[in-house]
Design a binder for these strands. Structure first.
Lengths: 229, 229
DNA sequence: ACAAAAGTGTTTGGAATACACCCATGC
DNA sequence: GCATGGGTGTATTCCAAACACTTTTGT
């Protein structure tokens, strides 16, 4: 037989999957790929793949992410481990799901070898997904909300520079509630994570908003998980 | 060769490890086992073991927990996945670490087959641990503190009934700061998670404190991780 | 001048903090 | 009756929520 890696006890396959979230200025979006092969051929799913023997699950997630989006530096954190016995029809698979935040404009979804398509979906337009990815998506959105409830997350979905109202719209959209514009702004500034730049938007048909930027850059997630904000 | 489970691609071994925390009325404690075999023979480590093919990582953690403590219902949540390439000298191993909270008195540490000892350590007396378990411990304590900062966790380390000052001592000990007794009490009650029982402590050489209990029981963790408080 | 969104400040209510006195029990 | 810890209430501070007017820019 062609199988060549043998062990005394059976072992599950290990994969890393990425829930990549973005914001189109209006709604939360998520990057999905269309599966080219069975199982779940034709279904949409989160990008992900098998762990190589010389990489951590984080490195695996980043590698897959790079392959599917062309980008290699994104905010990323462990979301949850999925290990139900029957979750992959091909056999026992343990999946470490990651939550990644991306600037949609920076990303050109590319369909890798295993995919017949790759694109952003508005969160409300996401079809039934392959495997247990529906559950993953729910958890990812919940986790993102949790993080954003402290007003200390989500910036990664905007560009390096952003206006206060872009940030405001993002928060209202993700948290699903109206937030007073003035209180939002002062609270954000009080957090100390943002600074005003001296640049303003141009060619807007009204008063030009100033750009803000993050004081610290989280595009590379903290190496030590205990350092997550 | 004796190896009998063969795969087309190499696979890491998968384990679940448990950081079991308890409270002795004075200090945070953690349950460790002493390794009977190499690697790290004689070193202390968290209980854990290899994933069976018919169980989830949660079930695996609960199984190990049962074997090492005799208990089978504890609050438990996923802590972090450790997957550094060289973290286990025996070969590539991916470990899902869990955080579990236990009532110390309910638990009799038992040294399983692989262990030459099992006992509680005060958090400040923990020796250098095997593998990357030192890092795991740090993260576990941080996570516990995070949870307790909302005054919505840690009850599982006391019994089914507990007095307000037991809870108070627990919080001061874990958070490492003085908390005003009166403010603590009213805040706890405001949380709505506790109720006074009509029972009082007996045989105390001073005014008998009343017992409180959790309104909801979290000894079995929520099946859906999104339901964690 | 007006439309459209940006920018900013003050008032107010509620929660957290600081703080002090009375109560029950065993000795 | 006193020592020990348990139980509770109030004044104050501070943060967050509610809220409205002025500014800039393009047409």
């Amino acid at each position: 037989m062609p199988d060549s890696y043998c062990y005394e006890y059976p072992r599950p396959a290990v994969t890393s999957d990425c829930v990549i979230m973005g914001f189109d200025g209006d709604e939360l979006n998520v990057l999905l790929i269309e599966r080219k092969h069975e199982p779940f051929m034709g279904k949409w799913a989160f990008p992900g793949g098998f762990l190589d023997m010389n990489e951590t699950v984080e490195e695996c997630a980043r590698r897959e992410l790079k392959e599917e989006t062309g980008i290699d530096n994104l905010f990323m954190e462990q979301l949850h481990v999925y290990s139900s016995v029957g979750r992959d029809p091909r056999g026992r698979t343990v999946t470490v799901a990651f939550l990644a935040l991306a600037t949609m404009n920076d990303i050109i979804p590319v369909a890798g070898d295993d995919a017949s398509g790759a694109r952003w979906f508005r969160i409300n337009d996401v079809p039934l997904l392959a495997f247990d990815h529906d559950e993953m998506l729910k958890l990812a959105v919940n986790r993102l909300r949790e993080r954003m409830q402290n007003f200390r997350a989500g910036f990664e979905m905007l560009g390096k520079r952003f206006t206060m109202s872009q940030l405001h719209t993002l928060y209202e959209s993700v948290l699903g509630e109206k937030l007073d514009r003035r209180n939002f702004s002062s609270r954000m500034m009080r957090s100390g994570l943002l600074v005003k730049t001296d640049e303003k938007a141009r060619d807007v048909p009204y008063r030009a908003p100033v750009f803000y930027k993050l004081l610290i850059d989280f595009t590379n997630s903290p190496p030590n998980p205990s350092l997550i904000l």
